[in-house]
Structures are given as C-alpha cells and as structure tokens.
Amino acid sequence: MEHVAVWIAAFLTLGIISFLYKDNPWYKLSEAIFVGISAGYWFVVLFWDNIYGKFWVGVFPPDVVDEAGNFVSHGVPDYALIVGAVLGVLMLARLLPGVGWISRWPLAFIVGCTSGLYLMNYFSSNIMRQVQGTIIPLFGIGYGASVYEIIGNIVIVGGTFAGLVYFFFSKEHRGAFGATAKVGIWVIMITFGASFGYTVMSRMSLLIGRIDFLFGDWLGLIK
C-alpha cells in the first residue's frame, strides 16, 4: 500500500512539474485531481467541524460518562447556537429570487461583529503599538548606540515617517513634502525588493521539498 501511495504522489508531482515544459494533459489531470480533492476535503472538514462538531453536538450533547462508561449526567445543551444556525440558514436565501434581501441580515451580523473586533485589533496592534515602537532614541539609550545602530534607528524612524507621508492624500506632493514622499516611495520599493527576495526563497523551499520527496522518499537516491 505504501508503494502505491508514494507512486501516486510521485506521479502527481511530476505531472505538475511538467507544466514547466508546457501545458499538457498530464498537468491538467494532476491539477484537476488536486482541485477536486481540496474542494472535497474542505467540504468534509467544514461539515464535521462546524455543522456536526459545533452545532449538532452543542445542541444535542452526549451524556457525560465516567471512565468506566457509566452514566453520570446529561450534557448541557447550548441553545444559543440555534440563533447562529438560523442566521446561517438565512444566508441561503440568496439563492431564492424575491427573498434574497433576507441574506443581508446575517451579513450585517458578520460585518458588524468582525468590524468591531478588527477595529480594536488593528488599531491597537498595527497603529498604536507600531507608533509606540517607532518612538526610539536615535542615538541609543544614554548615547550608547554604535554607528550601525544609529543608522538603523534613523532608517526605521525616517522610513516610517516618509512612508506615512507618501500615503497622505490630503496634500499635493510638492516642495519638502514632495521630497519626503519621494524618500517614502524609495523605502517602500526597497521593502518590496526584500519581500520579493523572500518570496523567491519561499518558492525555492517548496521546490526543494518536492525534490527531496522525489529523489529521497520515492527513488531513495538521497542518503
């Protein structure tokens, strides 16, 4: 059985890699299998975890038993879940012409909840903490920083400030403001360069992982 599994995996991996040569039926087959399996997998996971695991078990909980399997007490049902389930069913109203507007109510609930939560999270983590983290002494604590650290500090503070200036839309980019914005876009471009490098590294890692599988787990050529 193990042999079959490793051969299927190798067959599909090679199929996907064959796209580098050109689009071909082997690639299409591998891709279709991948798409189909992942869609099916997600359906199963969401069904068992959400509909069964959360809702069904929550509303109709099994009895509590001790280690020997003897009855201890009835489970406590959580009827609040029914509200969520009803809202969930209302989402399906989208499919029916005429009553499609009903689906807006659960949407309003989702949008309301998530925006409330996100507002807090983003505001504190991505704005306040970041502003606080940027307030650093340029020359280190008690003048103690090395030249490299001073340059690093200036880049952090200057880069953040210039980046903010670039994304400030209420003022024309002219004069000193425009010059700062220019610095800002340079900093942003350098960041993109770094990000691009990291992406290359990430994609290479994926390729290395597959090569390790093909030459190691499959063909056994790697010691």
Binding site: S125, N126, R129, Q130, Q132, G133, T134, I156, T191, A194, S195, Y198, T199, M201, S202, S205
Partner: peptide, 13 residues
C-alpha cells in the same frame, strides 16, 4: 518566507 517580511514590524515593536 513569503509573509516573514510583514512580521518584522511586530518584531521591531
């Protein structure tokens, strides 16, 4: 590696 650059801001702060 794709998302690591975005996390440096959290590391710095």
């Amino acid at each position: 590696a794709v998302q690591a650059p975005m996390m440096y801001t959290y590391l710095n702060a």
